[in-house]
Write a protein that binds this DNA or RNA. Structure first.
Length: 337
DNA sequence: CGCATTTGACCGGG
DNA sequence: CCCGGTCAAATGCG
């Protein structure tokens, strides 16, 4: 299960006056962007809309095709691909937006300031993006197209699993301050929460083909092979549990040998300015088509991150059935450029 | 040897 | 002083 939710974070700890100024500037920039966004539809928004539409259509199609084994598998794969494309598009939009906002008035600091800021800025995540995704193994979720280097791991109070800290590998070479944190969900260790902070100032994203090549090499397989192994795993999975209820707690223990099984975005919850309350997951699905629409404007607001998608109790499993994800297909990394 | 990860120390905010 | 985040020395790995 990979559920992705994107939210903006309102960090209430803006300490110095300097930061406060930045914050207000930040909001101004954002507001003007919002107005602009509402005016003309950006390409990115259109992209998100279209992908969202494709996703919904694919979802419906998958339902129909699920009765046929091979068609159903292909449909799930395609569904997964679309999900990831959508997620990557969202990530791209977010990064662009953040770049725009930070390249303006905020970036007018000299290097000294930047250096001083660098420490604070991480804890001061201006606007950050949070992705939550679950993964069987951990590998797939790491493959978001960027090079990350782990720099710390800490046990968090009240959390079962430690939190891992990553930063962009090219931080020194390119001053890229992007950061992410990963932590397994308490209730389901197959759910991995990933929080992204900052944006990539480096352009060291792995080029699409290389990246794919890397992945293929590392997995010793070509696309067909992928499909095959996927189907194999699918069957194995079927034998273990009658349905792909990825969110059920026993699922994690039920398949130690199967790696990298994940369904894709179920929950892309984007909220407006006020802090998002828990929407029932089913209604979220109904709102699929609206999500892309909300994205652009919602991200211009500073809202609070609310951790979601770790819920194992919600009736998500119904829709999970056709959201299976063989994990190998972050194919459209050009979205990130 | 040059990279990454691990892991306890360290630091600063609350 | 606690806690979350980061540093950096040690260690691992190709």
């Amino acid at each position: 299960m990979v559920s992705i939710s994107i939210k903006t974070i309102n960090h209430s700890r803006y300490k110095t006056t300097h930061h406060i100024e930045q914050t207000s500037n930040f909001k101004q920039v954002k507001l003007s962007e919002k107005v602009k966004m509402e005016g003309d539809k950006s390409d990115q928004k259109m992209l998100l809309d279209e992908l969202s539409r494709a996703r919904e259509l694919m979802r419906q199609l998958t339902v129909h095709l699920s009765t046929n084994e091979s068609y159903g598998t292909s449909a799930r794969e395609l569904m997964c691909s679309i999900e990831k494309a959508f997620s990557l598009a969202e990530l791209s939009c977010f990064n662009d937006q953040e770049k725009r906002s930070t390249s303006g008035s905020l970036q007018s600091e000299n290097e000294q300031d930047m250096r001083e800021m660098s420490r604070k800025r991480k804890s001061l995540p201006t606007m950050t993006r949070q992705i939550q995704l679950a993964a069987e193994g951990e590998v797939s979720s790491m493959d978001d197209g960027y090079h990350w280097r782990k720099y710390g791991q800490k046990g968090i109070l009240g959390a079962k699993h430690p939190r891992s800290y990553y930063r962009c590998t090219h931080r020194n070479t390119y001053g890229c301050s992007a950061t992410k944190q990963m932590q397994k969900a308490d209730n389901n260790p197959t759910v991995l929460n990933i929080t992204y902070y900052g944006h990539h100032t480096c352009h060291q994203k792995i080029p699409t083909h290389e990246w794919q090549q890397d992945r293929f090499d590392s997995e010793h397989s070509h696309e067909q092979h992928h499909l095959l192994s996927f189907q194999t795993e699918l069957k194995a999975q079927d034998q273990m549990s009658s349905s792909f209820s990825f969110l059920s707690a026993p699922f994690s223990q039920a398949q130690p040998g199967i790696r990298l099984f994940s369904t894709s975005t179920i929950d892309t919850r984007i909220t407006e300015s006020s802090s998002p309350t828990f929407v029932s997951q089913t209604s979220e699905l109904k709102n699929y088509l609206n999500k892309g629409k909300n994205l652009q404007t919602s991200e211009t607001e500073l809202t609070e991150v609310i951790s979601t998608a770790t819920s194992t109790t919600n009736p998500l499993t119904v829709d999970m059935d056709f959201l299976l994800d063989p994990n190998f297909s972050f194919d459209d990394s050009n979205f990130l450029s």
